[in-house]
Design a protein around this nucleic acid. Structure first.
Lengths: 180, 180
DNA sequence: TTCCGCGTGTTCGAATTCGGACACTTGAGA
DNA sequence: TCTCAAGTGTCCGAATTCGAACACGCGGAA
């Protein structure tokens, strides 16, 4: 199996350890961070496949500002890295805000291990998909664009060609070339 | 100003009317639907810029299943059309599920008019952005791919060319061609 | 029936693009 | 210092691709 690395960010060491145990079958390795500074450090040191981030790891805060800040830092450091947020002080507003800012899932503490595992697994898949998509060969992105345009115009080559700004013959040749 | 059309789906006529009034400055026209069947009808009849969809418009249901179904129908009918969900029975789980399934925002009833307006405005912008992105000329998608690869490799033409599966000279020519 | 519009498949000379090769610069290291 | 590796800018014959044009099929209207 492919080696997978998950970053767990929580200021409560017991919680972080519990999460690491729950994920021991899913992630081949987990690393823990307890502060924003440590988060940055870990992000720059290694390449992760998913991040599990607590919203409230600053002492005495429960509005989630620290979590949103951490989310922003992760996304800035690596836009393709998927982040799962978790919190004990769940409100609809903060959950919605989190997802709108790019988190892939939002868990409530205490979590059910099955849901945590499923969420992290899905997050790793999202990261992999994003990374695969961002390193496409040039003719592959062309192929995808051609495919989508053909689908949109229901196979009508003339319309698709016009929409793509290409002569009909050119699109016909590409259709052959890519086996579409 | 560009004409904009918003579809409001709610089984309570008073609520739908209140939403329409709140949006009278934002949308040049609003259309109301009160059932899933009517939703399908409206979707196939006209092209909307945003949808405001109540989660609980089926009598006696409050688990949001009807709303998620409606969301799926809208996305199937037009994947680029942005949907804002709203509900009076807000739970974190249902809110998260909604956004993961592709809603762009999630509002709680009773809403604040300012938030409703802002959300719908943002949804219309999202729809416009999606529609602009899906009808790109073929050389534009190539340009974007080249640009991203160059950025990723910090301007190193050789690396970017290798990553794109193209000869270095070819990428150099495109860089000139697109003014990058 | 004939005609016409629309779409497809194919051809061919022209135009563009390819990629290997060469010269040059820069920066690191012996 | 010299050397070497890596990257860039450029050139040119070969290869590919372009698009206008032509032929054909098909469904609808006169």
């Amino acid at each position: 199996m492919k080696s997978s690395l998950v970053l767990i960010v929580d200021d409560d060491a017991d919680v972080a350890r519990a999460a690491a145990v729950a994920l021991r079958d899913e992630a081949s390795r987990t690393i823990t961070a307890a502060s924003l500074a440590e988060l940055d450090l870990r992000l720059s040191a290694e390449s992760f496949d998913a991040v599990l981030l607590d919203m409230n790891f600053a002492v005495g805060r429960n509005d989630g500002a620290e979590g949103l800040c951490g989310l922003a830092r992760v996304r800035h450091a690596d836009p393709s890295l998927a982040v799962v947020l978790m919190t004990a002080y769940a409100g609809v507003a903060i959950a919605v805000e989190s997802l709108k800012r790019g988190a892939v899932d939002f868990l409530m503490k205490p979590w059910q291990n099955a849901r945590l595992v499923e969420s992290v697994r899905s997050a790793m898949a999202t990261t992999a998909a994003r990374r695969a998509g961002e390193s496409l060969q040039l003719d592959a992105v062309e192929r995808i664009a051609v495919e989508r345009s053909l689908a949109k115009h229901r196979g009508n080559i003339s319309l698709a060609a016009a929409s793509l700004g290409v002569s009909r013959a050119a699109l016909y040749r590409r259709k052959q070339k890519y086996g579409l």
